[in-house]
């Protein structure tokens, strides 16, 4: 190979040029071929690169199997534990966390993805039926109507709330349409069927209270720190309407008779230490103490394994009537 300068290019020069140009073409082709070999940095941008961040079984399995219906999941299920719960529900987390919260699974469902209306399912695992019932009862919405699918469920305009076994369940729709309401009912039904059927949905604590004067759907379970008193846990409450006065009755089943009577005395002492005064008035209920506290009346007594009483009664007479009924009812229950 020898190249020398000429006014006109020689053969060698032209051949060499051809070789070099061929190399350039090859380089160009090589570069072009290389571009289809996608850089990991770009692969990492693809949505599927981030899916494995979720456990695969959770990603695949929908929370409620809706095959065969017109409802379909349209987001992967998400799971939250006590550390992450507030990311999903923010400030409301405290209520759940103080009531034995274990986990929350959520997923969105829709009938028609393009229609823009969908509902989000919240399944709170609360460890025990009592805890589940407690968070259910304590958040009962105003203007709710009882649902007829399962016991312990009610609906609002755009949502359905239910307690079932250890689970507290919410389905929140994007609007108040009848279509969504139907779909919610269907979801709840499938959930109940796949989680022990209606037998698992017994109403807790309802038989603790006499029916006379009972305000419907007012049963609540306070799992801890009831009425601001630390020792009071697992307290069922019901609203009563007696002679036009609204008042609250409460019952709690303790380990044994002794526990119940000790707690009764302790609670009485606590109320007294906060400034309640004993009202010298007989209720004709053994061990009951009637107290005047601010503007309301409190009656506390124990009956067998039960601690019971009347809370924040506006009228002394009504309170005494309710206490007597309650004591009578509990005597029957305790005998069973």
């Amino acid at each position: 190979m020898e190249t020398t300068g000429h006014p006109r290019p020689g053969k060698t020069e032209t051949r060499l040029s051809a070789v070099i140009l061929a190399i350039l073409v090859m380089i160009g082709a090589g570069v072009y071929l290389r571009q289809s070999h996608i850089n990991p940095a770009v692969v990492a941008l693809r949505p599927e690169a981030h899916r494995h961040a979720l456990p695969p079984d959770l990603y695949q399995a929908a929370l409620i199997d809706t095959k065969g219906s017109r409802i379909a999941p349209f987001s992967p299920p998400e799971r939250f534990d006590p550390d992450t719960l507030y990311e999903k529900i923010n400030g409301r987390a405290d209520l759940y966390l103080s009531s034995g919260f274990v986990s929350l699974n959520t997923q969105r469902f829709t009938m028609d993805e393009t229609a823009g209306n969908w509902m989000e399912l919240f399944v709170y695992d609360m460890a025990t039926p009592e805890n589940a019932f407690s968070v259910f009862s304590m958040q009962r919405r105003e203007g709710a109507r009882t649902d007829d699918i399962v016991p312990n469920a009610y609906r609002t305009e755009n949502a359905l709330f239910m307690t079932h076994g250890n689970v507290y369940l919410e389905i929140i729709g994007t609007d108040a349409s009848e279509d969504l309401q139907q779909a919610m009912g269907l979801l709840a039904q499938v959930f109940v069927q796949t989680h022990g059927g209606t037998t698992a949905a017994r109403v807790l604590g309802a038989d603790l209270f006499p029916e006379d004067g009972l305000a419907p759907e007012s049963l609540q379970l306070i799992t801890a720190n009831a009425f601001g008193y630390e020792q009071l846990n697992q307290i069922y409450t019901c609203e009563y309407n007696i002679d036009g006065t609204r008042l609250t009755a409460f019952v709690s089943e303790r380990q044994n008779t002794e526990d119940a009577s000790v707690l009764s005395v302790e609670y009485q002492q606590t109320l007294l230490s906060y400034g309640a005064t004993v009202v010298d008035s007989s209720v004709s209920v053994d061990s009951a103490t009637v107290m005047h506290f601010f503007d309301t009346y409190e009656i506390v007594f124990s009956r067998g394994r039960y601690l019971a009483g009347v809370h924040e009664a506006g009228s002394l007479e009504a309170a005494k009537i309710l206490a007597r009924r309650l004591a009578g009812h509990l005597e029957v229950s305790d005998g069973k």
Binding site: Q35, H37, I38, A41, V42
Partner: peptide, 11 residues
């Protein structure tokens, strides 16, 4: 960064 022909891809 991206997957368009004029973006990073595998260039």
């Amino acid at each position: 960064l991206g997957e368009q022909w004029w973006q990073l891809r595998g260039w």
